[in-house]
Design a protein around this nucleic acid. Sequence first.
DNA 1: AAAAAGGACAACCGCGCGACC
DNA 2: TGGTCGCGCGGTTGTCCTTTT
Length: 323
Amino acid sequence: MGRPPCCDKVGIKKGPWTPEEDIILVSYVQEHGPGNWRAVPINTGLMRCSKSCRLRWTNYLRPGIRRGNFTQHEEGIIVHLQSLLGNRWAAIASYLPQRTDNDIKNYWNTHLKKKLKKHQAIGAIFAPPPPSSDLAAHPSIMPTAAAAAAVGGGDNSMLATDIPHQRPAEVAQLIARRSPFGAATATDGGGGDSSSTSSYASSMDNISRLLDGFMKSSSSSPPQHHDVKPSPAAAINPFLCFDHMSATGGGLLLPADAISDVPPPQQQQVLTTTAPGLHGGGSYHEPAKQQQLSSIENWLFDEEDDADLMDLSDGCCSVPMMF
DNA sequence: AAAAAGGACAACCGCGCGACC
DNA sequence: TGGTCGCGCGGTTGTCCTTTT
């Protein structure tokens, strides 16, 4: 028979969360930490499914989340990664630490997909060049990769399998150092205009107010990984730093036919150990899978070396979107 | 000014996986 | 070794908001 429901649906409240519910949930997480979601509705009296509580926390209440306008830079990263990884939103989100997988997924479905379509239509008119040999070597990912290249002007050569090896620790540092968001504060302007949203669920003001006490009361030090400079928010928030790499069970997932073996970033290993109650979900903890990840990392982040593409300021795009 | 259509996004649902017993 | 539980992920739906007619 089918799987039983995750919780008794009788009496379970659905729909938008109220400020009161958010306060209850934040207070509970403040006290017990994220995790053991099954116990949350029981202990708090929230008439919500445990999954609903987790989702609410993960996507909206968790500190460090940036909402609102995606920068061109972020768009470029998303398009590139989507072309490589497919709809593995959690993996993609791991490269945009302040964005949630749900946010990225929604943004893709509502914005980027249309832009891609539009651009492809234009591209069809102007007779696109034949696929490169690199793409031909990876037929399983060629279509989307080619699409991303068409949109972002990406370098298809990154798909070659002979990109120099890089050790996981170095990769982790690379990610941390080069990520435009790793060192950014949770409140930096950056184009995220959450205050313009009227609905409660989208109001960063409301959430910030809820979290204010939470973050101040957090006494434990945030995990430090390598040369990542923690943001002011991270300095007082123990949850900010493990963000997606562990909290969302992130890590780089790659198509098996394109990338046979992938290691978890060193960063993830470090951070996961600092995230009580979280077990990191995915099945990415496989050893001796370093080289292919390095290839992806190199490709993803090396673009900045070519043309100042990885400027950390918003409004600067590593992959110019020519929509 | 009102209704309809379309867009954006928050939330739900089902499934897969790992941990634990 | 098999069953159960808890969690995370990706797809999909529902609702609200904005724009157009």
